[in-house]
Simulated scan of single mutants.
Amino acid sequence: MVQQIPTNAAPAIHYPESDGQPMADNTKQFRWIVVIKENLELLFADDPNVFVAGDLLWYPVEGDNKTRQAPDAMVVFGRPKMDRGSYRQWDEDNIAPQVVFEVLSPGNRLRNMTQKLKFYERYGVEEYYVYEPDDVELIGWLRSGDRLELIDETNGWVSPRLGVKFQMTSDNLEIFTPSGEKFLTFVELAQLKEQEKQRAEQEKQRADEAERQLEVERQRYQALEALLRERGIEL
């Protein structure tokens, strides 16, 4: 009979991939989350080592499945693009997301936002932006040493990491890429693509018509040249 020796191995820690909270409370908040996340994805589409995610749980401490946040959008420089159930920092070369965004809704509370600020400050976020679409207000913090310091003026601010520019209007926030292209909704992007397609078709039609006219003139010239030769006139 073989005697079983008891072990003291600790059970494996489970890191949930959902916190049970909805990504957004209303359509406006959801639209802004998608606009920010997808346009950032597009901005860094050609860089295989920039990971962009939305509403993904970030666990900064191995062995601790209670300390976590799910930013509305986050950008991680130095990590590959790939699907993840959560962002477990110890599996990611211990690289923390450098830039995070939160989009507020009427359901957000000041206490909750304060807790998030402390979390992002403690675990290494370099830039933290909070947008309130109802009041059209953008607040930002930039890391200085071990603290996130409030950015005095976000209107016209250019993100050091992302290179994007934030511009406030009377009724909206506009975000521009380093090349000056505005962040657009999926519908606006589709409409722009259709406009470009129609413009390209019109340009092709004009080019084809110009080519046809040129061919007509060429044929006329050849006919005239042949007629003159028949009459003994050399050009």
Rank of each mutant, 00 (worst) to 15 (best):
Q4I: 13
P6T: 05
P6R: 02
N8V: 09
A12S: 09
Y15P: 02
Y15Q: 08
Q21H: 10
D25M: 13
D25W: 11
D25P: 03
F30Q: 10
V35Y: 10
I36H: 03
I36N: 04
E38M: 09
N39T: 06
N39R: 04
D46I: 08
D47V: 05
V50L: 00
L56Y: 05
W58D: 10
Y59C: 03
P60R: 00
V61P: 04
N65Y: 10
K66H: 12
T67G: 06
R68Y: 08
R68A: 12
Q69G: 08
V76T: 07
F77A: 00
G78P: 01
R79M: 04
M82H: 12
G85D: 15
Y87K: 02
Y87A: 02
R88W: 04
Q89T: 09
I95G: 07
A96C: 11
P97K: 00
P97W: 01
P97R: 00
V103S: 07
P106F: 09
L110K: 09
Q115K: 12
L117V: 01
F119A: 09
Y120S: 08
E121M: 04
E121Y: 01
Y123S: 10
E127Q: 00
Y128H: 03
Y128N: 00
D134F: 12
V136E: 13
V136N: 10
L138W: 07
I139L: 14
W141S: 06
W141D: 03
L142E: 14
G145T: 08
D146A: 10
R147S: 15
E149Q: 15
E149K: 13
L150N: 11
I151L: 04
I151V: 15
I151G: 09
E153H: 14
T154I: 06
G156Y: 01
V158Y: 03
V158M: 07
L162A: 01
F166E: 04
T169H: 04
D171G: 11
D171A: 12
F176D: 01
S179F: 06
F183L: 06
E188V: 05
A190R: 15
L192C: 04
K193E: 15
K193I: 07
Q195W: 05
Q198D: 14
Q198V: 15
E201L: 12
K204L: 12
Q205C: 05
Q205M: 06
A210F: 06
L214E: 15
V216H: 07
E217R: 15
R218W: 05
R220P: 05
Y221T: 07
A223L: 14
A223N: 10
L224V: 11
E225H: 13
E225D: 09
E225A: 08
L227E: 15
E230W: 12
L235G: 03
